[in-house]
Structures are given as structure tokens and as C-alpha cells.
Amino acid sequence: MTQIQLIVNGKKVEGNVEPRKLLIDFIREDLGLTGPHIGCDTSNCGACTILLNGRAAKSCTMFAVQADGMEILTIEGLATDGKLHPLQQAFHENHALQCGYCTPGMIMSSVDLLSRNPNPTEEEIRLGISGNLCRCTGYHNIVKAISSVAKSHIFVSPVKKEGRD
């Protein structure tokens, strides 16, 4: 077992994990944050996407011990002061989710996309979320939601300081 320390959604957490434990399992099972999901075993679907030191990461693709000392933001930490993040609001208003299973990862990838590129074209949006699969919406309204946030310039990066990647 290995001791790890991280900051998750602004709070300091400690864990005692098997070195082989995947970060997603640490987040879901040990921390009880069940917003990030698991949809595949090959890092294709992106349902487990979180922000790791400010950048989107698939938390099924790394071990919890690799995240030692890092800062994690999950979907649960995105709304601030009881107010939805503009992307969350836009997903709701544009009917950009149906079953909601891909949604947490999809929103976190969108956060990363707009952090890097505040004015993406439709093609750039589609490419930006191409690491996240959705089986319900055919992506149409997801693209619309992200585009609406970019066009109205209401995106706010949830990451306080510069990413350390």
C-alpha cells in the first residue's frame, strides 16, 4: 500500500492505495465521487475525464499513485458557490444530454477545450471532444452547447492558477 496526498475539488485528501489501483477507482470507490464514470477498458470513451493540474485527463489511464501531489477537479467541483458553470448551464439549455452517463466527462473535456481555445470552430469543437463518446445525442446538441458558451464569451476557467503540464 502506498500513501498519497492530493487536492481534490479544492480539498486536501489522503489515500492509502495499492500501487496498481487506477485513479478512477480511487476517485469513485475511495473518495466516493461517483460523477466520473467508467464506460470502457481502453481509454476510448472519456466518461472518466477529470482535470488534472488544470488539463483534461482520463482517470482510467493512470494509477492513483501517479496523481500523488497533484490537483484534481471532478465534475462535482465545477459549480462554484451553488452556481452552475456556464458549460453546465449550456448543456441543460441545449438538451446536450440524455442518459447523462457521458456528461461529466464530456463537460470536463469541454472545459479543457475552451480553456485552450476560447473561440473554436465547429470542427475544432468536434475534434476537441473526440476523446469522449456519447451514444445518446449523436453529439449535435453537445456541439451546440459548447459553441453557445464560446460565442457568448461567458466561459470562465475553473482552474485558479496556470496548469503545470
Binding site: 465521487l33 461517483t34 460523477g35 466520473p36 464514470h37 471532478t74 465534475i75 462535482e76 465545477l78 459549480a79 452552475l84 453546465q88 448543456f91 441543460h92 444530454l97 447523462g100 452517463y101 456528461t103 461529466p104 463537460i107
Partner: peptide
């Protein structure tokens, strides 16, 4: 929607 976009769905 609200529970899903905040990560509070119960699967």
C-alpha cells in the same frame, strides 16, 4: 438534467 450535469446521477 441538474443531477447529471453536477455529477450527482445515481447509476
Amino acid at each position: 438534467d441538474i443531477r447529471f450535469i453536477t455529477g450527482n446521477g445515481l447509476f
